[in-house]
């Protein structure tokens, strides 16, 4: 694998501002990712938005990823080096015409098949910085069960309120749980 090119000018600024915080950085096909510890997320995001040299005024999207059984080795942000879940923020600076991924890795502390609250699957909401984060964060909550602290209205958005799972987790079966799981398969012989 080629050595990543970490020339992104924002990385140096973040490093300079947050002395003593351990960051990871990755680059693939010209797109740079900054991996931030979960407890520092809000500070880093506020810095990226407000610092005049960074000026990331536009939060394009919030993406959730589940790295259960992720097979690829040798990536700094892969499990082992990272965690089970990731929340990725896609930042755009209109002024500098620059893009940056910010990634937070989270590890669950309990079984992920249910929908019970998990105290370690929490991360600070950035809705106070970008109100547009409200719906994407709701979607990540809906699909992965990651809760966002201080979110103004954390409800499920695409599935209904009483939905019994977080369906994009990798341990959720493709055909869903419940009625379809127990279907008897009728073959030619047994029919």
């Amino acid at each position: 694998m080629a050595k990543p090119n970490l020339d992104h000018p924002t990385l140096a600024l973040v490093k300079q501002r947050f002395v003593g915080v351990k960051f990871l950085a990755a680059e693939f096909r010209g797109q740079t990712t900054l991996v931030v510890p979960a407890d520092k997320l809000h500070d880093v995001m506020a810095f990226l938005r407000d610092d005049s040299a960074c000026a990331y005024n536009f939060l394009s999207d919030v993406i959730g990823v589940d790295y259960l059984n992720y097979p690829a080795k040798g990536r700094s942000d892969a499990p082992g080096g990272g965690g089970r879940f990731a929340v990725i923020y896609m930042l755009v600076s209109h002024e500098n015409n620059r893009r940056l991924f910010v990634k937070v890795m989270l590890n669950p502390s309990r079984d992920t098949r249910g929908i019970e609250q998990d105290p370690s699957l929490r991360v600070a909401s950035v809705c106070d910085l970008w109100p547009g984060a409200e719906w994407p964060e709701r979607e990540v909550f809906d699909m992965y069960g990651i809760r966002f602290d201080e979110h103004p209205d954390l409800r499920r958005i695409l599935t209904w309120e009483a939905y019994p799972a977080h369906p994009l987790r990798k341990d959720y079966p493709l055909r869903g749980r419940g009625e379809r799981e127990g279907y008897r398969v009728v073959g030619r012989d047994s029919a």
Binding site: S60, D61, I63, V65, Y70, P71, M90, W135
Partner: peptide, 26 residues
């Protein structure tokens, strides 16, 4: 936007669409 994560296999590991109207509707 399409976010694709590949593990080197024939299927994407994660495939996410950033829908324009989803954000516009918010």
């Amino acid at each position: 936007g399409f976010y694709l994560e590949s593990q080197g296999g024939p299927m994407p590991y994660r495939c996410k669409a950033r829908a324009a109207t989803f954000c516009n509707l918010s």
